[in-house]
């Protein structure tokens, strides 16, 4: 309805008063598309060509021989894990990456909404004080968060083990119990879950980093709920749980779902923690697609292989975007019912 109104207004305006210039939009777009054409779109196309060649360090110099065409060999090597680099296994990489993103976002959303509800409680003292300090993890650049938390998880001098020893001391456990080498231990801490200890350490770090923005979004949604709705629900005899389910959740859902999807994509591509904290270890098991892509070109100098890896990543991300968009639409229509 509102869209139709603006549409009619726009048509009316363009017919009568708008200055007419058909080339105008292209002039405004020109600078951006000139720049993007040269440094974004052309490199992406160039990358597709590179991915079918054996581009290597020998082809870097200007004027050196052009690389040989190898067809789909790079793609086969990447997908079938036939690269001659240690600890590389594509299926594990992709599965770990999905598990990493799912587990993080689930925790962030639940904690973010929970803490937003807690601080939103009517009559809670120092609300503003809490809200302004809870945002602190967001204001620190992630590269610094990652490197500082790496020190925190240090086996001998890190704050986490010292803190655990302090807490353990209260119940009489000796400090030597808490000497876990969080980021390097090879054995899995939980025998039936094939994830290394470094995963849990980074999960803790990213939770610290991730829940506050979810809480900000949830708080915004909570503040937009008209108080009358709760009163009406109360008059109808709804209990606390029913009020939460039928009023609070209805307002939270449309705000949280797009944000959770956004968070999923961000976390899926989160370079800093895996690169700086665990450095992909132990045995490459906490490597993400983005860090593996970086290592292929920066450490291994396999430019052709790296290009095919990036193309594969593009299709994986495209798939994720399509699926999440479907999910968002499905939940949106659920909303309207």
């Amino acid at each position: 309805m509102t869209a139709a109104v603006t549409e009619i207004r726009a048509i009316g305006a363009s017919a009568s008063r708008r200055p007419r210039r058909n080339r105008m939009p292209y002039l405004y777009l020109a600078p951006a598309f000139l720049v993007m054409g040269v440094i974004t779109l052309y490199p992406l196309i160039y990358q597709v060509w590179m991915s079918f060649t054996d581009y290597g360090i020998q082809n870097l110099r200007a004027g050196s021989a052009s690389p040989a065409w190898v067809g789909a060999q790079n793609y086969i090597d990447v997908l079938a894990s036939q690269l001659s680099i240690p600890n590389y296994f594509f299926v594990r990489l992709l599965l770990y990456n999905l598990v990493w993103a799912f587990s993080n976002v689930a925790i962030h959303v639940v904690l973010g909404v929970g803490i937003a509800l807690l601080v939103h409680t009517r009559g809670l003292w120092f609300k503003r004080f809490y809200r302004s300090l809870f945002i602190l993890p967001v204001v620190i650049p992630p590269i610094i968060v990652a490197t500082v938390w790496k020190n925190m998880f240090d086996a001998d001098h890190g704050a986490i083990n010292q803190l655990l020893a302090l807490a353990g001391g209260v119940v009489g456990l000796p400090a030597s119990t808490f000497g876990a080498d969080w980021l390097r231990q090879v054995e899995d801490p939980i025998s039936f879950i094939p994830l290394p200890l470094a995963f849990y350490a980074m999960l803790v770090t990213n939770t610290w980093l991730g829940w506050p923005l979810n809480a900000v979004v949830a708080t915004g949604a909570l503040q937009s709920i008209p108080g009358e709705l709760y009163e009406a629900a109360e008059i109808d005899g709804a209990g606390r749980w029913q009020q939460f389910k039928n009023v609070t959740m209805v307002f939270l859902r449309p705000a949280m779902i797009p944000y959770a999807i956004y968070g999923f994509v961000i976390t899926f591509n989160l370079f800093y923690l895996a690169f700086f904290m665990s450095q992909g270890g132990p045995q490459g098991r906490t490597e993400l697609l983005v860090t593996q892509a970086y290592r292929l070109v920066n450490d291994q100098r396999l430019y052709g292989v790296g290009a095919s890896f990036a193309v594969i990543m593009f299709f994986i991300l495209l798939g994720i975007t399509l699926v999440t968009n479907k999910l968002a639409k499905a939940t949106a229509s659920y909303q309207d019912q």
């Binding site: 292209y26 993007m36 974004t40 490199p43 591509n269 892509a293 991300l317």
Partner: peptide
Amino acid sequence: FKFRGREVLMLAILGVLMLPPVATLTPLFV
């Protein structure tokens, strides 16, 4: 503005936005 090619260009931008910076690392380096 409404102009020819608007949707295609916006999709191109969205597509690039979806990519992590690492995606253009190799070709830009070369």
